[in-house]
Design a binder for these strands. Structure first.
Lengths: 354, 354
DNA sequence: CAAAGTTATGTTAGCGCTATCATCCGCGGG
DNA sequence: CCCGCGGATGATAGCGCTAACATAACTTTG
């Protein structure tokens, strides 16, 4: 059926050949195969399972493909093989460095293995997450990476019904059926609060913004630590639904002053808030930490450079991304990952602001 | 061939029916069609061209699909229709807020129109960009958004050969065949330098890092402005290939001091560098702007809060993302966009640091 | 030296969807 | 009463690729 080795095809092949790249103008596998004088499947193999093709022929295929500007059609491949080589990744925000660094970890683990990330931003809304999941499931992702554990009922139904491998990032899950990589936000809150207590602060405030589950877990840690010390007082807790920002942190200092708060320390749920607070303290001449101690969370790059430098808790978000992706790769390979719940811990960083 | 209206199928259909969701376990369009008692194409229409299906039937199809957990297979759709509903977006970095905000603008324009972004990070390397393009072309993107104008020859070949609509972001192109949305980086550099000259500074330094084309364009603007004033001096220009960071900005202040530089002002090519410089000046007791003026570029959020606040040039990156995406949408619709070269301008922001 | 691999390649038949062209039905006008 | 028309639905044939099973040409082995 196929003329082998003939450099110049004298007569047209028996079957009527379709014109090259019928619709899109792009060369197809069949076009490359025809040019080389072999069948399409061998071209496929030259790309996907090169070890199955004789080295010489393989090189000839690759060269020909290159010269024809052939690019494999991922949609056709996905359809035929039922593998999309795509992982859906949902994060709450992209302006928050924490998640961007998580993404970097995911990318670094996934790309070398040939997987691509389809990134969705939920804006901290489980409903938005549900909508994104619905959309992204159309791409038949081979795996899913989710942030946190706060999902709608529909999302959970989708996930269990489709049985796509799924790993939850940031928070830890106790459910033995779910996979999770993260650190204990509650412990982080407790760690910082204990530190402040040790330093002698007694009227410690907490500023919670965004009010996502992780922030609330930190608040829990703070509350438990203070309750144990008999020092918890609801009036020193501020809860704001607004997104975290430097501006808001600065505004909180103004508010504390206006409200005549008696805090001798304030634990901000995020470094950018705390940075804003430090900036505003400097403006207003509030001495940190003597007059007011300031603490943050996450250890953003600028926190080591503010005046004074900021005491904070470093979260291993890059590592979380890497490990979550690694776990997912195991699952997609049909292997059971070493552990279904991976706590990567936290690092407390004492600096000048406390 | 198809039994119409029969609620309980008494006899198997004439053709042997494949079992539901043969490989992936997922329901297919045919499954939904069978359940409703219609043909697959009508289900397809109910999703893609709802106005072609009678409202009652359409609702019934949608309900049935929902109850079966049917999710359209994007790969099959893309293959059959030759439209992937995907746009490849290549940015140099994701830790740089500038590009993250550009992405946000792109998303906000693309998602409501049903397009998805496939995001690639080039790490400022044209070679990496070429590799990513090759990978992402496999997804047959309906359009491509690129950052900058510095591409490898191969990249350019790919782009012209495949004739996928492409828009360049950030920098402006004069080539009438290319589409671009951005602002003049050179003008930004000139703007700031002119400002510093007006303020009376005469020994103005420039710190260029990363050395990407945009940084170098700013440097050009700086140089031209100083040359016109007869004040350009190569010894006040620092060129470093390292990525921009607060840390590096701080280190540059140390270096200026160590080198006994005579600068009375330093124009940093990026706000994070300038912020680091301000932090370090504060640490070392260098009075800004009296002893040394500091200027940045891009207007990052923290720049309005440092002590002193930072003079900078705001770039319209969110708008650039939006407009670039809008332009691409036009192209993908086969329409000619209103303009092929869109300059969104810059905003000079004078603050305390100069 | 025949039987049983091994290695390299080919044939066939779909994956799940949509473009394209039919088909069918009811309705108004000549 | 037939024709033509528009609106709703269907049959068919691929899109470009790969899984699964041949096949052919060698190599090994008892």
């Amino acid at each position: 059926m196929t003329t082998r080795g003939g450099d110049r095809p004298a007569t047209p092949a028996v079957k009527t050949r379709k014109p090259r790249s019928s619709r899109t103008g792009r060369a197809t596998m069949a076009d490359v195969a025809e040019r080389v004088g072999i069948s399409a499947i061998t071209v496929s193999r030259a790309f996907k399972r090169p070890e199955l093709v004789a080295p010489e022929l393989r090189q000839r295929i690759l060269d020909t493909a290159q010269s024809m500007g052939y690019v494999p059609n991922q949609a056709a491949s996905a359809l035929a093989s039922a593998r999309s080589m795509t992982v859906a990744v949902l994060i709450p925000s992209m302006t928050n460095m924490v998640f961007v660094e998580t993404l970097a970890g995911i990318h670094d683990m996934l790309l070398p293995r040939g997987y691509r990330a389809l990134i969705g931003v939920t804006h901290y809304s489980p409903e938005e997450e549900e909508r994104l999941i619905r959309t992204y499931l159309q791409f038949q992702p081979d795996g899913i990476l989710l942030t946190g554990t706060d999902h709608t009922a529909v999302t959970r139904t989708y996930l269990s019904a489709l049985s796509s491998p799924t790993v939850h990032m940031m928070e830890l899950l106790d459910d033995p059926d779910s996979l999770s990589v993260g650190c204990s936000q509650e412990e982080g809150g407790r760690l910082m609060t204990t530190h402040l207590l040790e330093r002698g602060y007694r009227r410690i405030g907490f500023v919670a913004v965004q009010l996502d589950p992780r922030t609330l877990a930190r608040l829990d840690g703070y509350r438990h630590a203070l309750e144990e010390a008999g020092l918890y007082d609801e009036k020193r807790v501020w809860r704001l639904p607004d997104p975290s920002s430097i501006h808001l942190g600065a505004a909180m200092i103004d508010r504390l002053m206006a409200e005549n708060s008696d805090c001798d320390a304030v634990f901000f749920c995020n470094d950018d808030l705390a940075q804003g607070a430090l900036f505003q303290c400097q403006r207003r001449g509030i001495r940190v930490p003597d007059q007011l101690a300031v603490a943050g969370f996450n250890d953003l790059p600028a926190s080591a450079w503010t005046t004074p430098t900021l005491t904070t808790v470093a979260t291993p978000r890059y590592a979380i991304g890497r490990h979550a992706a690694a776990m997912l790769l195991d699952l997609m390979d049909g292997k059971e990952p070493p552990q279904r719940r991976l706590d990567l811990g936290l690092t407390f960083i004492a600096r000048e602001s406390t």
